[in-house]
């Protein structure tokens, strides 16, 4: 099986995001990681190839610094990588999907394309679908259980309150992974060393014939969300405090 896993290089979810200018942030001070949902995709791909044979290729659209994130993904068992280098902190998901498509098609014929269900930086939740549409492939997102066999992917996703639906699509297809699909492995030291030697091809958008100027969505403004200023701590006996809380919630906040 030839599996491509799209991995995004994103700020750590715990990172402090300092706004810079109208629509940017200071990315030199925060730690970057592989998008957490993408780790479920990498793990799923590596497990499939361990069982059925084949190759796992990491595809990233991001800055040069994303190479470190790609090495981490390769330490989990992927075989090699392709980096499409872009400048700028935010790339329209349409352009990203064109870049992913061009990089994948230049490299080979996918049996499967895996990615996370969404990225934790821009929370756009659509690149999977755009890539699938561009490549004319079926897509299933938010997959938390998966079997791939006999030219068919069978996937489960949650539809609310613990209920799930089961979907089927012929392969090749695009699948977006979410928590529950597996437990991503922690790479061991020898795997980390080996990953340093794995091949990473690099392209620019221009190399792939893509024009980033065609974006249809524009980030006008990025603003910090103010934190609450600290709790009003209720005092007294347990009984007094819960009675006071109920009064506040009913009479002052009117949320009950």
């Amino acid at each position: 099986m030839q599996i491509y896993v799209c991995v995004k290089h994103v700020p750590d979810t715990a990172a402090n995001i300092k706004i810079a200018g109208e629509n940017g942030y200071n990315d030199s001070t925060c730690k970057f990681i592989a998008n957490p949902y993408d780790e479920y995709a990498i793990e799923a791909a590596v497990q499939l190839v361990e069982k059925q044979g084949g190759e796992v290729v990491i595809v990233t659209v991001g800055p040069e610094a994303a190479l470190a994130t790609m090495r981490g993904a390769m330490a989990m068992g992927a075989h090699r990588g392709i980096l499409v280098k872009v400048d700028g902190q935010f790339l329209d998901s349409d352009i990203t999907s064109q870049a992913l498509k061009a990089a994948i098609e230049k490299d080979g014929a996918p049996d499967l394309i895996l990615m996370g269900k969404g990225a934790v930086d821009t929370e756009g939740f659509q690149t999977q679908y755009r890539l699938a549409a561009a490549m004319n492939l079926p897509v299933i997102n938010e997959v938390l259980k998966l079997t791939v066999d006999g030219g068919k992917a069978v996937a489960e996703r949650e539809i609310g309150a613990g209920s799930r639906e089961v979907l089927e699509a012929p392969t090749p297809c695009v699948l977006g992974a979410t928590k529950g699909l597996n437990e991503p492995r922690y790479p061991k030291f020898p795997d980390i060393m080996k990953a340093k030697k794995k091949a990473v091809q690099q392209f620019t958008l221009a190399d792939l014939g893509i024009d980033a100027a065609g974006a249809k969505s524009e980030l006008l403004k990025l603003e910090p969300v103010p934190e609450r200023s600290g709790a009003k701590i209720l005092e007294g006996s347990t009984r007094d405090r819960v009675v006071e809380l109920v009064r506040i919630l009913r009479e002052e906040e009117k949320v009950l």
Partner: peptide, 14 residues
Amino acid sequence: SHFSGKTVATIRLD
């Protein structure tokens, strides 16, 4: 929301 609810983004859809 962008960045896990730490920032809010205003986006224009053209």
